[in-house]
Design a protein around this nucleic acid. Structure first.
Length: 923
RNA sequence: GGGCGGUUAGCUCAGUUGGUUAGAGCGCCUGCCUUACAAGCAGGAUGUCGGGGGUUCGAGUCCCUCACUGCCCACCA
């Protein structure tokens, strides 16, 4: 890589090249340690990529997630840890099946027409074709994952883990099968878990239906009991009507029966305290097969359950004349029929929440069906303990509460899905004894009766059952032997999980439950039992925010405000987008993604690019006069002798301070602080001040002191190179390109990512920081003065400076710096500023420019008056506090002293400003 | 119904255990093509920290309350 960089920074031309190089060279592969070499501990850093769905395309949320993980992984790797970032994809049961079904529909066919086997083949084909798309996009983003370890949740070895987990839980009697009300999606035609139902507020109706009361002889008494329902179609499955036992309106109906309209069936009136008297009519129809509350009611009162709908929510034979109607058509017909028979009491508007399938948004039908469940409490208990005992730490902390609240109120988990795509449940049903055989190896006969008439369950497992196992399964569980457990011993528990709150329950909580449960049985590398502390799937969880659009709106396809990261990356470069996300990623706050920021950070990248060009230009000039660039000294923190020029001591002090800050911030997941720190240092300190000053030292003329030039160039190079390393986790492409250019074809490593991350070496040189701050203030005042009195930009003019003792000598020593940066021809140290000159005063100095001023007297007067008002206010404020005995007694000494000093400064400045005002021509 | 956030400059956001004069980026105004960079340089303006009350010598920061706003959980038919 030659160091003659093109004139302008063009991200696309460099990013593709390095992205390809990192993958080709396998730079981030983390091989399995040799047996016995792997030891868990702080020397390791392992992290799992939340596996994107194979259906996925990269969106901004992914990019944020991956940028954060990549920054941390690169930082950890460069800090000397054995870093492993493990990528993979999720088969995503429902989501993927839906995509393929949609494709089939477009072809005019269906999965039913294909049959199960052919359909599953088709999905695999689809997966091979599209499944890697998101990973290819990740490569383009520079994600430093170990591509050699890439997995897919339906890989053979991960499927083994799924099967083992299922069988084990079954053996432990923590998996059971039973008929319960589950959330049923009629479009996906499968059960879904509580978490997969999203509720939307819906303006519906409350229909009041009159149920005729019948007498002892079974004849209509002429009386009615009016019930209220939001779903009239379910009345076909009514088995009772419930009222509150103390409801005075209905006391006379106790023990009576009703005729179910339309179905002409006798149903009892039951009494239950669950019924609320003030809702609707105080009488509620009971449909155990289609409502969870009714189901519980039915259990309590030993009522039958009548399921009136089929898998696609059409009315079945139990619905009599309504058989075959789709549920909403049935609803309309039923309401119409009731009206015609005079049994419709009334229709009221009613706003209520309606559950929809998370995937396809179809209205969910609560429905009685036979499903598999995990008895979750024992797992949840461990998962609660793991967090309460501090074995897993959440950032931001508040998510711990959210997590515990959910985990402590958890319900059994419905894990069976009536899908074709997924891990098939390892349970065989016997046609003879009707019992179930669950086994690790496919059985040929029923373990209960020995019959060979067994058939495997057609259900598959919830996708999250397999992804919940990932932290253990990717490292080889359950087949861990002394020979092959090095990965597990080294990398489990993983160090960190970085993810969004949207999958806190779906995935994070499940991993904690399953990790604690299954890893707990794996002995430690030394054979000792594993404690809960070492069973957890990860030690820390960092939950990041949602990426919204610039107006803080959630991105969604329907709103059309989705920002495609790949598009933005093409326009501004990956580095700029990464830096945007990092700089806006403060924990707990959503990110309003604004391309204006990205434009700003592309400018930052360009700034770095140009700083590199400037430096390389000087390296070349130095080479021409026989000064070497001193590359051998690179790769460490720069150090400068105490007699080095001020700017050299200062920039090294600043670099150390910023390095400490960045390391600390990254340790606290403060990506924003870290990014701002680097930005501020590089642009504000390094470019704006240091580079401008160092131009003075880069004197390649014959008469120049070569040693001094060489020293200046060395500090320049070292500081710049260290800055690149510091920046490289954030902007991996740009820094890689420039870093290689520094070495002009002979880099000491294959990548900047494989060098060491800077560590602050020493306490910052305070005297350099103080002196430089003073000079910066002086230079800024001179520039401001020039502007105020209208000195042309190009004019070079003398100044007068009055400063106190040590500061005066700093001015004298560094007059060349002042002259260059403030366009000054001569710095005159004086006892007092000459009368008539335009002057600025600070607590430390007075400064004036020697110039025939074209002063705007009115503006100057305004400025001074404003200053005076400010000083007076400050003094009054200080006096008020200092006059308060409580403050003097209770405030810490440094606060009181600071305030006193500040007051003195303000008194001085006030005097100066008043004098200056008096010296102005009268109004 | 329960819980958790947020409200700071025109915009997007920082602000560590309460402590001296509340910050950044973008935007805005003014002047500069100063040979690394006009994707730049220099200078400048801008806030009753959502309202009210309280604790304290001292509150953007702690407590109470109200308003607005966002999210999560629950799901009474």
């Amino acid at each position: 890589m030659p160091h003659d960089l093109p004139k302008s920074y063009d991200p696309t031309s460099i990013e593709d090249r390095w992205a390809e190089y990192w993958v080709r060279e396998n730079l981030f592969a983390q091989p399995t340690p040799k047996a016995g070499e792997g030891t868990a501990g702080p020397a390791q850093f392992s992290i799992l990529l939340p596996p994107p769905n194979v259906t996925g395309r990269l969106h901004m949320g992914h990019m944020l997630n991956q940028t954060e993980m990549d920054i941390l992984t690169r930082w950890q790797r460069m800090s000397g840890r054995r870093a492993l970032w493990l990528p993979g994809t999720d088969h995503a049961g429902i989501a993927t099946q839906m995509m393929v079904e949609r494709q089939l529909t477009a072809e005019g066919t269906s999965r039913q027409a294909l049959g199960r086997e052919a359909f599953v083949d088709r999905v695999w084909e689809w997966k091979r074709h599209y499944g890697g798309a998101i990973l290819d996009q990740m490569k383009r983003l520079g994600a430093s994952v170990d591509w050699q370890r890439e997995y897919f949740t339906m890989d053979e070895r991960l499927s083994v883990a799924v099967r083992e987990a299922f069988v084990k839980l079954y053996e432990q009697e923590l998996i059971y099968r039973g008929a319960y009300i589950v959330n049923w999606c009629p479009r996906c035609q499968t059960a879904i878990s509580d978490l997969e139902v999203v509720y939307d507020e819906h303006k519906g109706h409350l229909w009041e239906i009159k149920y005729p009361v019948i007498d002892a002889q079974g004849k209509d008494s002429g009386e009615f009991l009016t019930i209220a329902t939001t779903r009239p179609e379910t009345m076909l499955g009514d088995v009772a009507v419930a009222i509150h036992p103390e409801d005075e309106r209905y006391l006379q109906l106790h023990g009576k029966k009703l005729r179910l309209p339309l179905m002409d069936r006798e149903i009892p009136i039951i009494l239950d305290e669950w019924v609320s008297r003030d809702f609707g009519t105080g009488a509620v129809k009971v449909t155990p097969a289609h409502d969870p509350n009714d189901f519980a009611l039915g259990q309590r009162h030993h009522l039958a359950s009548i399921n009136v709908m089929d898998d696609s929510a059409h009315i079945n034979e139990a619905g009599g004349p309504y058989k075959g109607l789709e549920r909403f058509a049935a609803r309309r017909k039923i309401v119409q029929d009731l009206e015609e028979t005079g049994l419709l009491g009334g229709i009221k508007d009613h706003v209520h929440n309606v559950g929809h399938c998370d995937r396809c948004k179809t209205v969910v039908e609560p429905r009685l069906s036979l499903q598999w469940f995990v008895k979750i409490q024992p797992l949840a208990d461990k998962a609660v303990a793991a967090v309460k005992e501090g074995h897993i730490r959440f950032t931001p902390e508040m998510y711990q509460k959210t997590y515990l609240n959910w985990m402590e109120n958890i319900h059994d988990w419905c894990i069976s899905r009536q899908l074709w795509w997924g891990h098939r449940i390892p349970a065989w049903h016997c046609a003879v004894c009707h019992k179930v055989t669950v086994a690790r190896e496919d059985p040929t006969q029923c373990t209960h009766c020995g019959s060979e008439k067994i058939e495997q369950s057609t259900d598959v497992l919830d996708t999250w059952f397999s992804s919940g196992l990932l932290p253990v399964s990717v490292f080889g569980w359950p087949n861990l032997t002394a020979e092959n457990r090095a990965d597990f011993d080294t990398f489990y528990p993983t160090s960190l999980l970085v993810t969004g709150f949207d999958i806190l329950f779906f995935w994070v909580a499940r991993m904690i439950m399953m990790g604690c449960w299954f890893a707990g049985d794996v002995p430690m590398a030394d054979g000792s039992p594993r404690t809960l502390a070492d069973s957890v799937p990860f030690r820390e969880v960092y939950i990041h925010a949602l990426v919204r659009d610039a107006n803080r709106e959630k991105m969604s396809k329907t709103k059309g405000n989705v920002i495609d990261p790949i598009e933005i990356v093409k326009e501004y470069g990956t580095d700029a987008v990464r830096f945007t996300l990092a700089s806006m990623a403060s924990p707990g706050t959503d990110i309003a993604f604004n391309v204006a920021r990205t434009e700003g950070y592309r400018a930052f990248a360009n700034k770095i690019w140009n700083a590199a060009r400037f430096i390389f230009m000087n390296v070349d000039r130095a080479a021409e006069v026989g000064i070497s660039a001193g590359r051998a000294a690179l790769g460490a923190m720069p150090s400068v002798p105490t007699d080095a020029p001020l700017e050299a001591r200062w920039i090294v002090a600043e670099l150390n301070a910023m390095t400490a800050k960045v390391n600390q911030s990254l340790g606290e997941y403060r990506f924003d602080d870290a990014a701002h720190g680097i930005y501020q240092f590089f642009w504000g300190s390094f470019c704006d001040w240091y580079l401008e000053i160092v131009k003075l030292r880069l004197d390649f003329s014959e008469s120049a002191d070569k040693e001094r030039t060489k020293a200046a160039l060395a500090t320049l190079m070292q500081t710049f190179e260290a800055s690149l390393r510091l920046l490289s986790p954030f902007m991996p492409f740009l820094t890689e390109e420039i870093w290689h250019a520094i070495y002009d074809g002979g880099p000491p490593a294959k990548s900047i990512a494989l060098t060491r991350y800077p560590m602050a070496k020493a306490a910052a040189d305070q005297s350099a920081l103080i002196a430089m701050a003073f000079l910066q203030e002086l230079i800024v005042e001179v520039r401001a003065l020039r502007k105020e009195i209208g000195v042309e930009e190009k004019a070079v003019i003398p100044i007068e400076v009055r400063a106190t003792g040590p500061m005066q000598s700093i001015v004298t020593t560094n007059s060349a710096m002042i002259e260059r940066l403030a366009r000054v021809s001569e710095v005159r140290a004086v006892e007092a500023i000459s009368a008539g000159l335009a002057k600025h005063s600070t607590a430390n100095f007075d400064v004036a420019v020697v110039y025939e001023r074209t002063i705007d007297v009115a503006a100057e007067r305004d400025r001074l008056k404003k200053d005076i008002a400010r000083y007076e206010k400050n003094i009054a404020n200080a006096d008020r506090q200092l006059g308060n005995e409580g403050f003097r007694l209770k405030a810490p000494a440094h606060v009181v002293d600071g305030l006193k000093k500040q007051r003195e400064e303000n008194v001085l400045l006030l005097e100066k400003a008043r004098a200056a005002l008096a010296a102005l021509p009268p109004e």
